[in-house]
Amino acid sequence: MSSIRKERPQTVEERVLEAAAYCVRTYGVHRVTLTEIARRARVSRPTIYRRWPDTDAVLAALLSMRIAGVLDSVPSRGVGREPLVERIVRVGDQLRSDEVVMSVFHSTPEFAMVYITERLGTSQQILIDALAGEIKLGQDHGSVRAGEPRQLAAMCLLITQSTIQSVQMVAPLIDAPALSNELAWALNAYLKP
Rank of each mutant, 00 (worst) to 15 (best):
S166A: 11
R42P: 11
S103Q: 02
E7I: 03
C156K: 11
Q125Y: 12
R25Y: 01
H141E: 06
T163W: 09
Y49D: 02
T108M: 00
W185Y: 09
S143M: 12
L137E: 04
D98C: 08
T122H: 08
R31L: 06
T11S: 14
T11L: 14
L157A: 05
W185D: 06
V16N: 04
D56A: 06
E110W: 12
E7R: 02
E110F: 15
V89I: 14
R50Q: 13
R15I: 04
A178I: 04
S44A: 12
V167D: 11
L63Y: 02
L120H: 15
Q165T: 08
A171I: 02
I135K: 03
G138H: 03
M169Y: 13
R81N: 10
Y115I: 02
Q10C: 07
R66F: 07
P172I: 15
C156N: 03
Q10K: 04
S76F: 10
M155H: 14
L17G: 01
R96W: 09
L95R: 14
A178R: 06
R96P: 00
S97L: 07
F105D: 01
G147A: 11
T108W: 01
M155W: 14
T26S: 07
A171R: 15
V58R: 00
Y115R: 07
S73F: 13
V32W: 01
G69V: 02
V144W: 00
R5M: 13
T160M: 08
M113D: 06
P172T: 14
R31W: 04
G92I: 01
A21S: 12
R81M: 10
P109N: 06
V58P: 07
S3E: 15
L95N: 06
N181D: 15
A60I: 02
R42Q: 13
V24K: 00
R42N: 13
A61K: 04
E134R: 07
I159E: 08
V74P: 00
P177H: 13
A61H: 08
A112F: 02
A68H: 03
E118F: 15
L120I: 14
F105G: 00
S44G: 14
S3C: 05
V32E: 02
E13Q: 15
G80D: 05
I159N: 05
S3P: 08
A184L: 14
L62M: 05
A41G: 03
D129R: 11
Q168L: 14
V101Y: 09
L191D: 01
V114H: 04
R81T: 07
N188P: 08
L120C: 09
V104P: 00
S2Y: 09
M102H: 03
M169Q: 15
I128E: 08
P177N: 03
Q168F: 10
V43Q: 02
T160E: 04
E148K: 04
T160V: 15
T55H: 00
V170Q: 04
E118V: 05
G147Y: 08
V91H: 02
M1W: 09
V101I: 14
M113I: 05
V70R: 06
P9W: 05
R45K: 15
S44D: 09
M113F: 07
T55E: 00
D93M: 12
I88Q: 09
S162E: 10
A132G: 11
V89G: 03
L120P: 03
S64T: 10
S166C: 07
